[in-house]
Deep mutational scan, measured.
Amino acid sequence: NKFNKELQWATWEILNLPNLNEEQVKAFIDSLRDDPSQSANLLAEAKKLNDAQA
């Protein structure tokens, strides 16, 4: 389904953001699992944090 694909994509993207530490990655992945419908928003937040920590 749509959420499953978005969840998989967001998870992959977050795992590959180079500037997030392990705790941050875990927190984003946990949030994705808690509410897959928020995957686009969570991915945007993760990318923003990744850029800020570059």
Rank of each mutant, 00 (worst) to 15 (best):
1 N>W: 00
1 N>E: 12
2 K>I: 15
2 K>F: 10
3 F>R: 09
4 N>Q: 13
5 K>M: 03
5 K>D: 15
5 K>Y: 05
6 E>S: 04
6 E>Y: 14
6 E>H: 09
6 E>N: 05
7 L>I: 08
7 L>K: 02
7 L>E: 07
8 Q>N: 03
9 W>M: 11
9 W>P: 02
10 A>S: 04
10 A>P: 01
10 A>D: 02
10 A>I: 10
11 T>R: 07
11 T>P: 01
12 W>D: 05
12 W>G: 04
12 W>V: 03
12 W>S: 05
12 W>P: 01
13 E>Y: 15
14 I>T: 01
14 I>W: 01
14 I>F: 03
14 I>Y: 01
16 N>M: 10
17 L>V: 00
18 P>F: 11
18 P>I: 09
19 N>E: 04
19 N>P: 00
19 N>T: 04
19 N>D: 04
20 L>Q: 00
21 N>I: 08
21 N>D: 07
22 E>S: 13
22 E>D: 12
23 E>W: 14
23 E>G: 12
24 Q>E: 03
24 Q>N: 02
24 Q>W: 02
25 V>Q: 12
25 V>A: 11
26 K>L: 10
26 K>N: 09
26 K>A: 12
26 K>V: 09
27 A>V: 10
28 F>G: 00
28 F>H: 01
28 F>T: 01
29 I>Y: 03
30 D>E: 12
32 L>V: 04
32 L>W: 02
33 R>I: 13
33 R>A: 12
34 D>V: 12
35 D>A: 09
36 P>R: 02
36 P>Q: 04
37 S>V: 05
37 S>Y: 08
37 S>P: 04
37 S>W: 06
37 S>R: 06
37 S>T: 09
37 S>K: 07
38 Q>W: 05
38 Q>F: 05
38 Q>K: 13
39 S>L: 14
39 S>W: 15
39 S>R: 06
39 S>V: 15
39 S>M: 14
40 A>Y: 15
40 A>I: 10
40 A>T: 07
41 N>M: 13
41 N>G: 06
42 L>D: 00
42 L>K: 05
42 L>W: 08
43 L>D: 00
44 A>D: 08
44 A>M: 13
45 E>M: 15
45 E>I: 14
45 E>A: 14
46 A>T: 01
46 A>P: 00
46 A>K: 00
46 A>M: 02
48 K>H: 08
48 K>G: 06
49 L>Q: 06
49 L>W: 05
49 L>Y: 05
50 N>H: 03
50 N>T: 01
50 N>M: 01
50 N>A: 05
51 D>I: 09
53 Q>I: 10
53 Q>F: 07
54 A>V: 08
54 A>T: 10
54 A>D: 09
